[in-house]
Structure formats: structure tokens, C-alpha cells
Amino acid sequence: MTAPPPRFRLFRGDRPLDALPSDDRGLAYGDGLFETMRAHRGDVPWWEAHWARLAQGAARLGLPLPDPAQVRAEAGALLAGDDAVLKLVVTRGSGGRGYAPPRDAAPTWLLARHPLPPAAPEEGIVLRWCRTALALQPALAGMKHCNRLEQVLARREWDEPGSADRDADEGLMCSTEGDVVCATAGNLFALRGGRWHTPPVDRCGVAGVCRAWLVPRTQAVVVRLSPEDVERAEALFVCNAVRGILPVARLGRRRWPPHPAVDALRRALADAHPGLVL
């Protein structure tokens, strides 16, 4: 009987670990970064873009990174030629109690493989508004850091007794100042006046890899959007590096039919990323 493939690999520096140390700063403080990537036949087509974002975040946090060649080799071995979701978590490593980071800690890093998500509905996804707001913190804005409690609170809203739109696929989050920032697990694009617009991520939110691919190709205007701007848009989509472009069919009472501009972008993305074929 063939053994099931491993689901994760854990390291400190370049050495394998059997378990996460109890004094790991990612566990204690969220002192780390992560990337969630779509793998196609054992490869990650956007590996360079993911690593570049990881390296930018690490530089801002003063976080040491493992050897990228070792990480990619271990990722390939873990994926074993399969289509999957690959998650890479890098923490500052072990440290004593207290917030002061150790000066010479070796990073702890974890690779985990997960099944692909289900395909999005052909007619598009359903969105809802989230009450939980994103705090303004420019020092952390754009990074995929390991503290995602705001998104956790927002996602819990689906399960509250009497919650409207419990069948929603995603939720839109605003900042504490009321401007629309993103979905709980993706970036937002809105077609207004025949041109694509997307919110900035300079005060909160994540600078998505798929968003970075789309902005220059759509010549999108990066501008703050109000909830009214979004609800009056000609078309909407949410995007991320795992699921690609997700057309929006409904948000509250507003409904959108399929839009040719969204369909064209999905075809272009499928040409660029073999894992995101339609």
C-alpha cells in the first residue's frame, strides 16, 4: 500500500524540525509572514512574485529569510508534481518572553500543501459587507503578515444567528475611516465609467500578487472607493493568487450580469498562469 504524500515540512534555518518550538515568535506574537500560492503540476508559476513580496515584507520587518533555493527545492519535493495550494510561513524564529526580537535568531519556516479550492460559480460569486473594519497601520500595510485577526473576525460574521447573506462567498471590508479596502481573502476591482479602479493598500490591506499582475494590464486607477462607489460600479471582481479572478454576481440587493471586460481578463490570466485555466 502506497503511503500518502506528506502534507508539510518544517525547518529552523536549514535544519528540519519535527515540531514547532514552544517559544516560536510566530506562535507567540504573529511575528512572521506568509505566502499562499497556486501550484500547477508541481511548480508555482508565480514563485518569483511571491518571493519578491515576501522579501519586501521581511526587509520592512527586519526578518531573516531562509535560503530561497532550499525553500523552492523543498516545495517541489512536497508538491510531487501535483496541483495544490502551497502555503509558506516564515517566522522570526525562537526567542524569549517579551516583544524585543532576538538579534541572531534563525528563521522558522513551514511549507504546507492543501487541496485546491472548489471552482467558483459560473454566474459569479455573492459578496456581503463586513462590519469588522481594518485598522489603519501604514507600517504593516501591504504585507502578508501573520496577524489576520481582523479577517478572522470578519469571516465569523457569516455564522452569527440571524446573519443576512449567510450564503455569501466573500465579504468586503472597509477601513475604520469607511473607505472600501478589500475582500477578506482577496483584492477588489470595480469598473466605473468604463475604467477599472482598485483601492490602495498604503494604510491597511494586502498588496496581492494577482492584483500586482492586473493593475498594469488593466491600467487600473488606484483610488479610495466608498461603498456607494462599489455598489454603483458597472462590474466587480475579487482576485487572489489561488483562485484568480472571481466575477461578482451580487452584493446586497445589487446584481451584475456577466461582463465581457471581466471575461476578457479571465482569459488573459489563464494564458499567463496555467493553474488558473477557465
Score class of each variant (00 low, 15 high):
Gly32Ala: 05
Gly32Phe: 13
Gly32Met: 10
Gly32Asp: 07
Gly32Gln: 08
Gly32Tyr: 12
Leu33Gly: 00
Leu33His: 03
Leu33Phe: 07
Leu33Arg: 01
Phe34Cys: 00
Phe34Thr: 00
Glu35Thr: 02
Glu35Ala: 15
Glu35Arg: 14
Glu35Pro: 01
Glu35Lys: 08
Thr36His: 08
Thr36Ile: 10
Met37Pro: 06
Met37Gln: 11
Met37Asp: 11
Arg38Ala: 02
Arg38Tyr: 00
Arg38Asn: 02
Arg38Trp: 02
Ala39Glu: 03
His40Glu: 12
His40Met: 03
His40Ile: 10
His40Ala: 11
His40Pro: 02
His40Ser: 13
Arg41Phe: 01
Arg41Glu: 13
Arg41Ile: 00
Gly42Ile: 01
Gly42Thr: 06
Gly42Leu: 04
Asp43Phe: 09
Asp43Ala: 15
Asp43Met: 11
Val44His: 05
Val44Ile: 15
Val44Glu: 15
Val44Gln: 08
Pro45Ile: 08
Pro45Gly: 09
Pro45Leu: 04
Pro45Cys: 10
Trp46Val: 11
Trp46Asp: 15
Trp46Leu: 14
Trp47Pro: 04
Trp47Met: 09
Trp47Gly: 06
Trp47Thr: 03
Trp47Glu: 07
Trp47Leu: 12
Trp47Gln: 04
Glu48Lys: 13
Glu48Tyr: 07
Glu48Asn: 14
Glu48Arg: 14
Ala49Lys: 00
Ala49Trp: 00
Ala49His: 04
Ala49Glu: 09
Ala49Val: 00
His50Gln: 09
His50Arg: 08
His50Thr: 04
Trp51Ile: 01
Trp51Phe: 07
Trp51Tyr: 05
Trp51Ser: 05
Trp51Leu: 02
Ala52Trp: 03
Ala52Thr: 13
Ala52Cys: 12
Arg53Pro: 12
Arg53Ile: 05
Leu54Gly: 00
Leu54Gln: 07
Leu54Arg: 00
Leu54Ile: 09
Leu54Val: 01
Leu54Asn: 01
Ala55Arg: 04
Ala55Ile: 00
Ala55Asn: 01
Ala55Ser: 14
Gln56His: 13
Gln56Trp: 12
Gln56Glu: 14
Gln56Asp: 15
Gln56Arg: 15
Gly57Val: 12
Gly57Asp: 11
Gly57Trp: 10
Gly57Gln: 14
Gly57Asn: 12
Gly57His: 12
Gly57Ala: 15
Gly57Thr: 12
Ala58His: 07
Ala58Leu: 06
Ala58Pro: 06
Ala58Tyr: 09
Ala58Val: 05
Ala59Phe: 01
Arg60Pro: 08
Arg60Cys: 13
Arg60Gly: 13
Arg60Tyr: 07
Arg60Phe: 08
Arg60His: 10
Arg60Asp: 03
Arg60Val: 11
Leu61Trp: 11
Leu61Val: 13
Leu61Thr: 12
Leu61His: 13
Gly62Glu: 04
Gly62Leu: 10
Gly62Ala: 09
Leu63Cys: 02
Leu63His: 10
Leu63Pro: 04
Leu63Asp: 06
Leu63Thr: 03
Pro64Glu: 00
Pro64Asn: 03
Pro64His: 05
Pro64Cys: 02
Leu65Glu: 08
Leu65Asn: 01
Pro66His: 07
Pro66Gln: 05
Pro66Met: 06
Pro66Asp: 02
Pro66Tyr: 10
Asp67Leu: 08
Asp67Ala: 14
Asp67Arg: 11
Asp67Cys: 07
Asp67Pro: 08
Asp67Phe: 03
Pro68Phe: 05
Pro68Arg: 03
Pro68Cys: 10
